[in-house]
Amino acid sequence: MSMQKYIVKRIFQIFLTLIIIMTIMFILFRMMPGDPTAFMLDTRMTPEHKAIIRAQFGLDKPIWYQYLFYLRNFFRGNFGRSFYYARPVYDLVKEKLPATILLWTGAYIISYSLGITLGKIIAWRRGGKLEFGSTLFGLFFYCMPIFWVGLIALWIFSYKFGFFPLGGLKGPDVWSDPSSGMLLKAYDVLKHVTLPLSVLTLAFFAGSMLVMRTSMLETLREDYIMTARAKGLPEKTIRDRHAARNAMLPVVTTFAIAVAGSVGGGVLTETTFSYPGLGKMIVDATLTFDYPLAQASFLFIALLVLVANLVADILYAYLDPRIVY
């Protein structure tokens, strides 16, 4: 099977998984005690208003009809209106998505590149002070709750030293001033994003480094490493071209497995830094009982995870010639 066919197949699988997740959501919100339609209707609405919404979302129809209606609405981009903001959920998601993608993918890319590089080096130089230090460092960061690391970072870098703003993504003084140029705006965003990005990077970094180290240590025992040494290749070539290249494979697999768990770190980081992304939005929506917004935020986070999985699968297939699609 060719690569294209494989990708098409995986996209189809993602589509199916998404429908299953939506079905779970649908059942979940129907199981709620009380008015089965409460998830769509704000208690603050007038009865007339409720009736209009009911009809609009087919809530007066049988359950199977409601289900199909729900699916159709989703794929048309109609997620209902947010109770809290009184705006279409679609617009809100569209607003927050870029910020989340910036923070999360940024953190994943930086942490995995750093983790792979450092893991490679410390495994190669077995038993140095560097290995002990980074393993200990990695262990602690692996076990620390990320939001606590965020709080400490805020305390030290924003509160004590004032290097960075306390939260948000855009400084109001810069963005409300019409005379601010692109460069100033970019600098402002960078200033806001640095701290949350660093914290999230640290959280992901520890895991990727520890996995790379273990994987590298196992790879170094492989016979082809002996072959490479016997060929007279320089140490660096053996380490990078022969050992690290193979040791990376389990790291990619681990990424695919871990991503569903680690996006939680993104949610917690966004909340700690009041970073206006999907993660903060899902928490706020849940706390304000804004069900349509919470559901849509969740579905988009789920979609991001599925896409990350797809990327990992494609990367793996590209890196390992043994893979049969």
Binding site: T227, G232, L233, D320
Partner: peptide, 23 residues
Amino acid sequence: MRSVRWNGISMIFQAAMNALNPV
């Protein structure tokens, strides 16, 4: 030693072992 390896003395490894890099 590196220039002696393979150029001067090379080795035939056991194939059942992973003597060839799989990637």
